[in-house]
């Protein structure tokens, strides 16, 4: 099964969206480009047989974080389609530095011989071809390696799972939620303390 055409579509959309975020001056269009970019990144994840990551990307990133971002855009735009101009000099400098950085990374990527890694993979994980990684990820979280990994990692001793990071992340999320709510609320009390807002 050849995924090459699909890869090109998603890769072009991803890169185009990312570049669109940089060159667009309108903040809402930037947000839209970002949606396109992150959404097609989810497509790349599906091509990489990481269904669960792709779905999470769509649900949490595109459906959650970006909605939050657009919300922020709406709440902070002082006028409709307000733009903050960047001077041409800054733009030029940014583009030059960006292209330089990109070329450095690109040459590094090209220089490395990735085929050896590829060969190692096909020997090690013949069963990793399907995208149904949800169960395997769940098992991996509690420290049970997927079937095809057992042989590979035997030499490294007992590897722990990701339960502790997982728990830390969940507590962190709770703290963040409370903190964000507090931050967003405190200023409102100051702002309409005199008018006595209904909240």
């Amino acid at each position: 099964m050849s995924n090459q055409p699909l890869f090109w579509i998603f890769a072009l959309l991803t890169c185009g969206g990312a570049v669109g975020v940089v060159i667009s001056q309108n903040i809402v269009r930037m947000a839209f480009s970002l949606i396109v970019s992150l959404g097609s990144t989810a497509g790349l994840f599906f091509l990489l047989e990481a269904d669960f990551v792709g779905a999470t990307q769509l649900l949490v990133y595109v459906g959650g974080t970006l909605v939050l971002l657009i919300f922020g855009v709406m709440l902070t735009a002082s006028g409709p389609f307000q733009q903050i101009r960047v001077s041409p000099g800054e733009t030029f400098l940014g583009a030059a530095v960006g292209l330089l950085l990109l070329s450095v990374i690109a040459f590094t990527v090209i220089d490395v011989e990735w085929d050896t890694l590829n060969a190692a993979r096909t020997e090690a994980s013949p069963g990793a071809e399907s995208g149904n990684t949800a169960r395997a990820i769940g098992l991996r979280l509690v420290g049970i390696p997927a079937d095809h990994e057992i042989g590979v990692h035997e030499g490294r001793g007992g590897r722990t799972g990701y339960l502790l990071p997982f728990e830390i992340v969940s507590i962190h999320l709770l703290v963040v939620l409370v903190g964000a709510a507090y931050l967003a609320r405190a200023k409102r009390r100051v702002a309409d303390g005199s008018t006595g807002g209904e909240n």
Partner: peptide, 20 residues
């Protein structure tokens, strides 16, 4: 898919972006 329901909810949550 093994995660069909999850993905379905994910895709349906994108609708709100169009509305916004």
């Amino acid at each position: 898919l093994d995660i069909g329901l999850y993905l379905m909810l994910a895709v349906m949550s994108l609708e709100v972006i169009g509305v916004i």
